[in-house]
């Protein structure tokens, strides 16, 4: 079975199995003479799509780290909030992989990263109440995760459909 679905959204499993191989064609230099004109157009479109998705992702990262994700980057307000309030930062040192479906309407992004979470402890005992009273009581964690993002192209514009932070 191919790692990429024909017309659906590529799964995280498919990425893990063969993401590196699938990603490679977008970056390979192929002699122009070997490509038909429509192939070139399609390839150009896919490169433009990938560039747009990566720009969207960068924008989204800036907003997550600024704690100001807005629905205009996403298909809905629900999608904008799907990561959870406890995530306060995402540090991404690698580019990750972007896969675009054959029909060019959906895409998936897989980004190894470190996710920082911040949660305020419940005031359910005296010590926690005192920690909160002194301006603390916030637990922070940072752990390696794999960010899986699904994209949809709506009215010629890429937006985020879902975001999942899975085990790296």
């Amino acid at each position: 079975m191919s790692g990429m679905e024909n017309d659906g959204i590529a799964t995280r499993r498919s990425f893990l199995k063969s993401g590196a191989i699938l990603a490679a064609p977008l970056g390979l230099a192929v002699p122009g003479a070997a490509l038909a004109a429509d192939d070139r157009a399609m390839r150009l479109a896919r490169l433009e799509d990938e560039a747009a998705i990566r720009a969207l992702h960068r924008d989204w990262l800036v907003r997550v780290n600024g704690r100001s994700v807005t629905a205009d980057l996403c298909v809905s307000a629900r999608a904008a909030a799907c990561l959870g309030d406890e995530i306060c930062g995402i540090i991404q040192d690698e580019d990750g992989v972007v896969e675009i479906t054959a029909n060019g309407e959906r895409a998936s992004g897989y980004y190894p990263c470190r996710i920082e979470t911040e949660s305020r402890m419940a005031a359910e005992n005296t010590f926690a109440q005192m920690a909160l009273a002194q301006g603390g009581g916030v637990t922070r964690t940072s752990e390696p995760r794999l960010l899986s993002v699904e994209y949809a192209k709506i009215a010629d514009r890429w937006v985020i459909a879902t975001v999942e932070a899975g085990t790296a």
Binding site: M121, F127, M130, A131, Q134, G135, G136, V138, T139, R140
Partner: peptide, 27 residues
């Protein structure tokens, strides 16, 4: 994120100190 220090200051007193995020003794 929830660490205290007990100080057994007298034969019948327990004091508890709550650390700040920097590890300093706080309240």
């Amino acid at each position: 994120g929830l660490t205290s220090m007990h100080l057994y200051s007298t034969p019948q007193t327990v004091s508890w100190i709550i650390f700040t995020d920097s590890g300093a003794g706080g309240m």
